[in-house]
Design a protein around this nucleic acid. Structure first.
Lengths: 173, 173
DNA sequence: GACGATGTAGAGTGATCCCTCTACCTACGC
DNA sequence: GCGTAGGTAGAGGGATCACTCTACATCGTC
């Protein structure tokens, strides 16, 4: 039961990340999930639900990748976060943030929008705590968003830039 | 002829901006363009072309909105740019950058991706020239991207944050 | 070894989609 | 007054889509 659900969620996440939210048909999603159509619809009774399940899975994996076992020193933690965003982009999200992509594909879906906001605010909270940049939640999220969006263009240079901007914040707050 | 083309491009841009790239059908796009289906297909022979035409129109309007008649003083220009991005988001792009949305909706479309890169690099070039932040093209684009992406969550606070980060750059370069 | 829960395989349905095509209208130059 | 260019209106085709349903396999439990 739960094992099948995890398998489905992981497969859906991978499919949406690779091909966007508009393109893959339910048949494609079924292939990616590696289950039958009946089972897929049993766990995710509509295509919209498949999107939600994929994003939830994504959220947990992202938090785990970026924020697990960070150094306690604030400056070192900031550098580590930026590096990890870089490796995340490289291996998982070469097309940009999956949450923004989902909302962009269905701008009228209010549930999706709240999912995006929850994801971003949790990321910002954790980043603030790890870097000691209290009172500058907006700034740190702005840098993270900027890194995520400009990484496809500039790669490592974007990571370096995000580190520099974050350090400027830490030295001027 | 050219008048009809402009009318079509403006209508398509508005439709895609309001409802994303996946949702609107060609029938919807026809309504937004305000022409007959035959005329629409005469100027844009496929739905993909409609996307391209809309993005080209968007690009020109964006450059015009952000970079026309900026103050010559670098610090003032930087503040003006951030303010204008804020008003642009408020009036035109409350769902985020249209180019990123287009690429997210069709990650396999190479033409779309180059269109995105050209758009971003032109924006970065102009921003560098206006703010005097030479040698920091990556940084300025990162801030602009961060502002665009985080504006839906933080509104004016995101603009303020972008101004602060930009000023930090100007004082430390 | 029967049974219920959980899975696979895949055909079928009704709706929707992109795009084409026929038929007709209007404005304008000569 | 007539031809031509450029437009409207909208029906229809062929393909694809999300989703349902029937029929069958597997496996742990009693």
């Amino acid at each position: 039961m739960n094992e099948t659900m995890t398998k489905i969620a992981a497969g859906l996440e991978k499919a949406f990340a690779a091909r966007g939210f508009a393109e893959p048909s339910v048949e494609d999603l079924r292939n990616a999930a590696g289950v039958s159509l009946r089972t897929l619809y049993k766990y995710t009774p509509s295509r919209d639900q498949m999107v939600h399940v994929a994003l939830n899975h994504r959220h947990l994996r992202y938090l785990d990748h970026i924020f697990t076992d960070l150094p306690t020193d604030h400056a070192a933690a900031l550098n580590a976060i930026m590096d990890r965003v870089g490796t995340w982009m490289q291996h998982e999200a070469s097309h940009g943030c999956l949450f923004h992509a989902a909302v962009a594909a269905a701008p009228d879906d209010a549930d999706l929008r709240t999912l995006l906001e929850q994801h971003k605010s949790q990321v910002a909270d954790r980043a603030v705590n790890a870097t000691g940049l209290h009172g500058t939640q907006v700034d740190i999220l702005l840098i993270l968003e900027g890194l995520t969006q400009s990484w496809p263009l500039y790669r490592d240079a974007a990571v370096t830039s995000a580190k520099r901007l974050g350090a400027l914040l830490q030295n001027n707050s």
